[in-house]
Design a protein around this nucleic acid. Structure first.
Length: 799
RNA sequence: ACCCUCGUGGCCCAACGGCAGAGGCACGACGUUGAGGACGUCGCCGGUGCGGGUUCGAAUCCCGCCGAGGGUACCA
C-alpha cells in the first residue's frame, strides 16, 4: 500500500479545496440545477447510510459541475426533534447544546467526506432565523383554515409522552421508540392535508418515471381514494348515512353497523340494551390496537335495539354496533351486505343475521362473492351489471333524496402538535375572550424559553407549560391576560419547506427570496432513503401546493426527480448496535480512506438495492485506486501532448468507454460506470507509459473518478501536471469518430446457435452481409430456408 | 390474505428480443520478494430458480409454480 497513502492525500487536498471554493452556487455558466440530499438528523456522527446517500448525490452534483451547470448543492440539519431531546435528557444535557455539538461533529465528517456542497447555504431548522419562518408559514395556514384545532382521539405514545401522526404509527407501534401506541382524547392542531388529497393523487401522474414506482404506489395507497356513495337509512327521527363503495349491492343490506365508539351508537342504543352496550364498549376499550386489527379475530358486536328503514325497499334492518367499523372513516356507519362482503358475512354468521345475495356470481363456497355478476333480488336494479347498477342506484338515490355520490380517503388530516420541548413553538395565543389568536407577524419568532435546569422529562403536557413567564402574555387582540400555546410542531413541518429556504438561507423579509426560489426551485434531483416514501415526501408535496395557492411560488411539485437509495446492511440484516451487527463509518474511513469507502458504495450495485457490506470489498477499491494512481504517476507524455499519434486501439477504447460512462452516469448506473472505468484503466496499463494515448486515457479516468473518489482524482490530476481543481475541469470531450468502431465481429447463427464469426465493416449493408454469411463455414452443408440479417452484428440462418 | 419487485459462475453484479460476461471479490498457477504481505502476469468448472408458450432467435416478452425481499392490511 506504499503507493497509496490516502491519509496524506486527504490532508493535502482538503485545505486546497477550501481555498479554491469550488462549489459556490451561482458560479456555473450553463443552466441551473438543484441537487438536494435529504438533510441529516443530528443524532450522533454520520453513519454508513449517510455515506451511501451522499456518495450518490455527490456523484450527480459533481457530474453537473463538470458539465458547466450552475449548481445549487446545499447542506443543513433537521435539528429539532424528539430523539435529540430524549438523548439530551438521558445525558442530563441541554437539547440545544447536545444538538449543536452533534452538528459540528457531522459537519467535520462531511468535510472529510468531500461532498461538493456550498457551505454558505447551510441551515439548521432549530435556529430562530429558520423557525421564525416555519411559524410564519403556520400562520398562513391558520389564516386559510388549513391549520385548525380539534379534540379527538389521537395516537399517543406512552413512552415518549406525546401524540403521533398517523404516518408515525407503524403497525400500532411508535415509529421512534417502537412501543405500542394507545389512543387519547386530546385537543390538538391539525393541517388540513385532506383538502389536498385529490391534487396529491392526481399530480403524481407528472412524477411517473422520475420517482420510484413503488414510492408512488405507496403514496397512492396511503391517500386511499375510494369513490362511492352515501345512502341514508332512517331510524325514527335519526338519519344514518352510510358510506359505501358498492351502492349497487344495497338490496343485499340486511343490517347496519355503527362504530362502537361513536356518539351515534351511544345515542341510538335503547335503555333496555344500555348495560350490554356499555359493557361491550368497556371490553373493547381494553383491547390493544394490534389485537383489534388482527384479521384472525372473530367479529364481536352488540345489538342496539333499534331498526332503520331501508332507503329503497323500506324493509326494517337491525342496527348493531361493532369495533370492526372505524369511527374515523366515512361516517362511522356501514350497511352490512353479508352476501358480498367477507367482513359483513363473518358478522352475520356470528349473530345469525340473514344473508341475501343480490348478484348472480357463481358462489365460490363459503365466502362472500365480489358481486360482479348480474343484479338479482334488487328491484329496479335487476338485470344490470355492476357499473350500470352503481350509476343507476346513485341516480335513483339522488332523485328520491336518500343518498348522493361521495368520495372517501384513507388519508387523515395531519396532526402537527407535539407535547415536547425541542421543537418549533406554535405561534398562537389562547385568550379566554378572543379564542386562538395568532402572534402578529412582526413579533415572530416566538423563541423557545431557556429551560436550562428545569425538569424536561415528558409528562404528557408540554414542558413549555412550566415556563410561566413565557406562557403568560397579553392577548394581541384585546390585551387581556392570555396564554401561549405550549405545544411544539412536528419536525416534519420544519422539513416540509427547507428546500425553499436553501435558495436564500439568510433572507430576512420572508421565508425565502422569491427571486432566488424562481431561479433555483424546484429541486431537480432529490436523493434520500425510501423510509421517507410517504411521510416527508407527502408532507413536502402538500406544503408546496399550499404555498402555490398562497401565491408564494409558482410550481406544484417540489422534487422533479427522486432517487431512493437502498440501505447498507451487514450479513443480510439491518445494522443494529445492540445486536453487534454494525459497521462504523469512521472506522471504515480510517482503514480504507474516504475514496475507497465511496467507491465501494457506488460500485456495489444499483443505487436502489441494499448493500451488504459483507459482500463488498473496500480493500479491492483500495487496490484499484493504488493502480490508477500509479498509472497517473507513470504517464511520460508531457502535459498538453496531442494524443493524435497515440495508440489507436487505446484511443478508441478511451472514447468508446467515455461514451458509455457518460450514459451510465446520467442514468445513475454508477456501478456500471465504475466497472467501465476499471476496464479503461486495465486497457491503459497494458500500453507503454510513454504513449500519448495513455495520457489521454489517464486524464479521462481522473475526471471520471473525480465524481466518485475526489481525493484520488485530484492527486492523479496533480501527478499528470495539472493545477488543482479537477472538480471544475470539465467533462472530457468524446470524439465520435474515435468512439465508432470501424469493424465489428458478426456472429453467424444456424437456428439461433452461433456457428461462425466474421469480421466485417461496421457499416456493412444487409445484402453484403448476407452474402458473406452464406459463404461462411457455418452455411456449408446446410439447406438455408430463410435468413435473418441484422447488420452489422448478426445473421441467423434458418435451416 | 392482497399488491409490487427480484432470482445470471463460489460471492457481489453487467448484458436496445440478437455471440451470456463487462467489472470486482474469492480462488489457483507462475513471477518478484529472505519468508509473509503487497505487487505483476495468466487462469477460473456456469448457461440465466422450475415448467410451459410466443419468436428465425428469450436472461430479457406472456402464463403457471417455487423461493427471497418490500409494501399494505377490518378503510366498507
Amino acid at each position: 500500500m506504499a503507493d497509496y497513502d490516502f491519509d496524506a492525500i486527504q490532508q493535502r487536498w482538503r485545505p486546497v479545496w477550501d481555498q479554491l471554493d469550488l462549489f459556490a452556487a451561482g458560479t456555473g455558466t450553463g443552466e441551473r440545477r438543484y441537487l438536494l440530499d435529504m438533510f441529516a438528523y443530528p443524532s450522533g456522527d454520520l453513519h454508513m447510510g449517510h455515506a451511501e446517500a451522499y456518495a450518490y448525490g455527490d456523484a450527480i452534483a459533481r457530474y453537473w459541475f463538470h458539465r458547466g451547470y450552475d449548481v445549487l448543492h446545499p447542506i443543513g440539519w433537521d435539528s429539532f426533534g424528539l430523539p435529540a431531546e430524549n438523548a439530551a435528557i438521558r445525558r442530563d444535557l441541554n437539547s440545544a447544546d447536545w444538538t449543536y455539538a452533534n452538528i459540528e461533529t457531522q459537519a467535520a465528517s462531511f468535510r472529510r467526506y468531500a461532498t461538493s456542497v456550498d457551505w454558505r447555504a447551510r441551515l439548521h431548522t432549530s435556529d430562530p432565523s429558520y423557525y421564525r419562518w416555519t411559524q410564519w408559514l403556520f400562520l398562513r395556514l391558520f389564516e386559510r383554515d388549513l391549520a385548525y384545532r380539534k379534540r379527538s382521539a389521537v395516537n399517543w405514545c406512552p413512552v415518549d409522552q406525546t401524540v403521533l401522526a398517523n404516518e408515525q404509527v407503524i403497525a400500532g407501534h411508535c415509529e421512534r421508540c417502537g412501543n405500542e401506541v394507545t389512543k387519547r382524547d386530546l385537543t390538538q392542531w391539525f393541517f388540513r392535508i385532506t383538502s389536498y388529497a385529490d391534487r396529491l393523487l392526481d399530480d403524481m401522474a407528472g412524477l411517473e418515471g422520475h420517482w420510484a414506482a413503488r414510492v408512488l404506489t405507496m403514496q397512492r395507497n396511503w391517500i386511499g381514494r375510494s369513490p362511492g356513495a352515501y345512502l341514508d337509512f332512517v331510524a325514527g327521527d335519526t338519519t344514518i348515512s352510510v358510506f359505501t363503495t358498492r351502492p349497487d349491492t344495497v338490496f343485499g343490506a340486511t343490517f347496519l353497523v355503527l362504530a362502537a365508539d361513536s356518539t351515534l351508537a351511544a345515542s341510538l342504543c335503547t335503555d333496555a340494551l344500555r348495560d350490554e352496550f356499555e359493557a361491550y364498549r368497556e371490553q373493547i376499550g381494553h383491547e390493544s390496537e394490534i389485537d383489534r386489527m388482527s384479521p384472525e379475530r372473530a367479529k364481536t358486536g352488540v345489538f342496539l335495539g333499534v331498526y332503520a328503514r331501508h332507503p329503497f325497499s323500506g324493509v326494517r334492518v337491525p342496527i348493531w354496533a361493532s369495533d370492526y367499523v372505524l369511527t374515523g372513516y366515512g361516517t362511522g356507519a356501514i350497511m352490512g351486505v353479508p352476501a358480498h362482503d367477507q367482513r359483513d358475512l363473518e358478522f352475520a354468521r356470528a349473530f345469525d343475521l340473514p344473508v341475501v345475495p343480490v348478484s348472480a356470481d357463481s358462489p365460490d363456497g363459503a365466502g362472500a362473492t365480489p358481486a360482479d355478476g348480474m343484479r338479482v333480488n334488487s328491484d329496479f336494479l335487476d338485470g344490470l351489471m355492476r357499473d350500470a347498477a352503481i350509476e343507476r342506484v346513485v341516480e335513483e338515490a339522488v332523485a328520491r333524496g336518500v343518498g348522493r355520490p361521495g368520495v372517501n380517503y384513507r388519508l387523515r388530516d395531519w396532526l402537527v402538535s407535539r407535547q415536547r420541548f425541542w421543537g418549533c413553538p406554535i405561534p398562537i395565543i389562547h385568550c379566554p375572550r378572543c379564542g386562538s389568536v395568532p402572534v402578529p407577524d412582526d413579533q415572530l419568532p416566538v423563541t423557545l424559553p431557556d429551560l436550562r435546569g428545569a425538569d424536561l422529562a415528558p409528562k404528557g403536557v408540554s414542558p413549555l407549560a412550566a415556563a410561566r413567564d413565557w406562557v403568560e402574555v397579553s392577548c394581541p387582540s384585546c390585551d387581556g391576560p392570555a396564554t401561549r400555546d405550549t405545544d411544539t410542531m412536528d419536525t416534519f413541518v420544519d422539513s416540509s419547506w427547507y428546500f425553499l429556504r436553501y435558495c436564500s438561507p439568510a433572507y430576512e423579509s420572508g421565508p425565502f427570496d422569491p427571486a432566488a426560489v424562481a431561479r433555483w426551485a424546484p429541486v431537480d434531483q432529490y436523493v434520500g432513503g425510501i423510509e421517507h416514501a410517504i411521510l416527508h415526501l407527502l408532507y413536502a408535496r402538500f406544503f408546496t401546493k399550499v404555498l402555490k395557492d398562497i401565491g408564494l411560488i409558482d410550481f406544484d411539485e417540489p422534487f422533479r426527480s427522486v432517487l431512493n437509495q437502498g440501505q447498507v446492511i451487514l450479513n443480510g440484516a439491518a445494522m443494529s448496535k445492540s445486536k453487534g451487527n454494525m459497521v462504523d463509518l469512521a472506522e471504515q474511513i480510517d482503514t480504507y480512506g474516504v475514496d475507497a469507502v465511496r467507491l465501494t458504495m457506488l460500485f456495489a450495485g444499483p443505487p436502489e438495492d441494499d448493500i451488504d457490506w459483507a459482500d463488498v470489498s473496500p480493500s479491492g477499491s483500495v487496490r484499484f485506486l493504488t493502480r490508477v494512481l500509479r498509472l497517473a504517476g507513470e504517464v511520460a507524455a508531457p502535459l498538453g501532448t496531442d494524443p493524435a499519434h497515440g495508440d489507436p486501439d487505446l484511443r478508441r477504447i478511451t472514447h468508446r468507454l467515455l461514451r458509455t460512462i457518460t450514459e451510465q452516469v446520467e442514468q445513475h448506473h454508477f456501478n456500471v460506470a465504475v466497472a467501465r472505468t476499471m476496464e479503461l484503466t486495465n486497457a491503459a496499463r497494458r500500453i507503454g507509459a510513454a504513449d500519448p494515448a495513455v495520457r489521454e486515457a489517464a486524464e479521462a479516468i481522473a475526471v471520471v473518478l473525480s465524481l466518485f473518489t475526489p481525493y484520488a482524482a485530484e492527486e492523479m490530476w496533480a501527478r499528470l501536471g495539472h493545477a488543482p481543481g479537477i472538480a471544475r475541469a470539465g467533462w472530457p470531450a468524446i470524439d465520435p469518430s474515435l468512439a465508432a468502431e470501424p469493424t465489428v465481429v458478426c456472429a453467424v447463427q444456424v437456428n439461433g446457435k452461433v456457428r461462425a464469426r466474421l469480421e466485417v465493416p461496421a457499416d456493412i449493408s444487409a445484402a453484403e452481409l448476407e452474402t458473406l454469411a452464406l459463404a461462411s463455414p457455418a452455411a456449408q452443408g446446410v439447406t438455408v430456408v430463410r435468413t435473418v440479417v441484422r447488420p452489422p452484428r448478426l445473421v441467423n440462418l434458418v435451416v
